[in-house]
């Protein structure tokens, strides 16, 4: 712990990802500070999800390396927790909420070993942290979208990681879940954990995140939210699609409407 806290939780060097021929992300350099909530924002197709997948080695990369607390990613896997997009799995799978959360323990268990009583208790605790203890034995298809998202969060908590990646945890959830998630994120922050969140809603960026990474195939800006999340940077990230009025952000059709309104 003493050693890890000296190094940055995540350093990404020269990361390039290409699907077929077209590069999706080009030479991304990033170093994030410890104990912050970090929002990753950018337009559709900007490579936000690709970024967090590539960093974790879930998809092949063309170049680049990732260091977690000063060591290569592969040695530090146990320090990383992951919340994939909810749509990435089949929710009709024959399993209940508790068993899904238990999957978060699998990495620590290693090969062949089955989760025991201690793991079950811990998983249940994680479920109750997201307010889902009552649903532990519910088949996962019987949960609402927000509840499914919370189960995924509880699973990430069960990983007991230091650094978390979350892929659009706020997408399509009810307001109660959104608040539960934010509360949880703040708790994680207090425990000096670092959380990177792919986020869509520009309105809540300033409220939720200490740090912001603006991404559109490359890093446009990264830094404390008040420095990075500026109208100029947003303009650079979203191009003509974004309209900035004072502290309000509006999405508009094209650059043409911008000119029209300027007249």
């Amino acid at each position: 712990m003493t050693m890890t806290s000296q190094k940055a939780p995540l350093v990404v060097k020269d990361l390039t990802v290409a699907y077929q021929k077209k590069p999706v992300l080009r030479s991304v350099h990033i170093e994030v500070p410890e104990g912050k909530l970090i929002g990753i924002i950018g337009p559709n197709g900007a490579g936000k999800s690709t970024f967090i997948k590539a960093v974790q080695g879930l998809i092949p990369i063309a170049s680049g390396e990732t260091e977690i607390y000063g060591k290569p990613y592969k040695q530090q896997r146990k320090l990383v927790g992951y919340v994939p997009q909810r749509e990435s799995v089949d929710w009709d799978f024959p399993t209940d909420a508790l068993d899904v959360v238990l999957m978060g323990r699998y990495g620590r268990l290693g090969w062949f070993r089955r989760p025991g009583k201690a793991d079950r208790d811990f998983a249940l605790e994680c479920l109750s942290k997201v307010g889902m203890a009552d649903y532990a034995n519910r088949q996962i298809s019987q949960l609402s979208g927000g509840q499914q998202q919370r189960v995924f969060l509880a699973r990430a908590l069960a990983q007991e990681a230091q650094l978390y990646f979350m892929d659009e945890p706020f997408a399509g959830v009810d307001a109660a879940t959104e608040r539960a998630i934010i509360q949880l994120l703040n708790e994680l922050k207090q425990q000096k954990k670092t959380v990177l969140v792919v986020h869509h809603d520009l309105q809540t960026v300033e409220e939720y995140f200490d740090w912001t990474i603006l991404l559109n195939r490359r890093v446009i800006a990264a830094g404390p939210t008040h420095e990075a999340f500026t109208p100029e940077n947003l303009q650079k990230t979203y191009g003509g699609r974004l309209h900035v009025l004072g502290n309000q952000v509006l999405l508009t059709g094209s650059a043409a409407t911008e000119e029209a309104s300027a007249q």
Binding site: K53, L58, V80, V89, G107, F112, R113, R114, P115
Partner: peptide
């Protein structure tokens, strides 16, 4: 023996890869 690993594989392979399997 591999019940746990095969469960991961059939439910959420992306997450399993993240765990290092």
């Amino acid at each position: 023996l591999l019940f746990k690993e095969f469960t991961l594989l059939s439910f959420d392979p992306g997450f399993g890869r993240g765990l290092g399997f």
